[in-house]
Computed example of a mutant assay.
Amino acid sequence: MILFYESEKLDDYLLELTEVNYSNPIIKKKADDLFNPSQTEIEKARIAFEFVRDEISHSWDKKSNRVTCKASDVLDFKEGICYAKSHLLAALLRSQGIPTGFCYQRLMLFDTPEKGYCIHALNAIFLKSLNKWIRVDARGNKEGIDAQFSIDEEKLAFPINKGLDEKEYPVIYAKPHPKIVAVLKENTNAIEMYKNHLPESL
């Protein structure tokens, strides 16, 4: 898939944002724990991805009501839905000067179109040493989901079924999409939000 950039300026993918608050002490401490100067950017990207994928629980998987949005809260509570997890991954990598954006898919919410659709979030990372963007999905693996860090062939959590009206949004956003931020701010129960209030399109 051909990806398009929301901004031509790589620096826009390094900005600190309300949701991507990498100056927060908890983010800085975790970055110090995860990274060291001897690591390459590819190693840092893999380490950050695997940390968020494996160590931060997906709220739906653990049946938690807590809604997180800011990267610092996602890290503090060690949970969030895919939107929140994408904010944390971006914060960790931007703290290391690695440009990181946000990508989205439209997926069936459950297993059939009749049960509705939702927007799913993942990340794009720019690797200067390879001069290319790669997409990764830190949603969290479980039975039937095996997302991996790959610099060659994408290994995302969900294959797209165009015949069932699923789709890729080809834009790499510099900021989390306003619809995504809004739903996290408007809801206080993650399970209820997941079932009934996730946006169906961007």
Rank of each mutant, 00 (worst) to 15 (best):
L107F: 08
I27E: 01
F49W: 15
I125Q: 05
E16N: 05
D137R: 01
L3A: 11
C69A: 06
M193V: 09
K195R: 11
I26M: 01
D152Q: 09
C82Q: 05
F51N: 06
F102Y: 15
S86A: 14
S57K: 10
Y169N: 11
D165T: 00
N196S: 10
C103K: 09
L198H: 01
L14G: 14
E41H: 06
Y173P: 09
L122F: 11
A157K: 05
Y22G: 00
L10G: 02
I172G: 08
I119G: 04
H120A: 10
N189M: 03
I191Y: 10
Y5V: 14
L156W: 02
I160D: 10
K9P: 00
P178R: 03
Q148L: 13
D12N: 13
I134Q: 06
A147L: 00
N21I: 00
I98A: 11
A71I: 01
Y22D: 01
I27W: 01
L89A: 04
D32K: 14
K195H: 12
C103S: 07
K175E: 14
K44V: 02
G144D: 00
K179M: 08
F126C: 08
N21T: 03
N65I: 04
F77G: 03
L122H: 10
I160A: 14
I81S: 02
A31L: 12
L75S: 08
S86V: 07
R53C: 00
D111M: 07
L17K: 08
Q105N: 12
D76K: 14
N24R: 12
D146F: 08
K85T: 04
L198F: 11
E8R: 13
S129Y: 02
P99E: 13
Q105S: 07
E192Y: 04
K115N: 13
F49L: 13
I125E: 12
N161L: 12
N65A: 10
V136L: 06
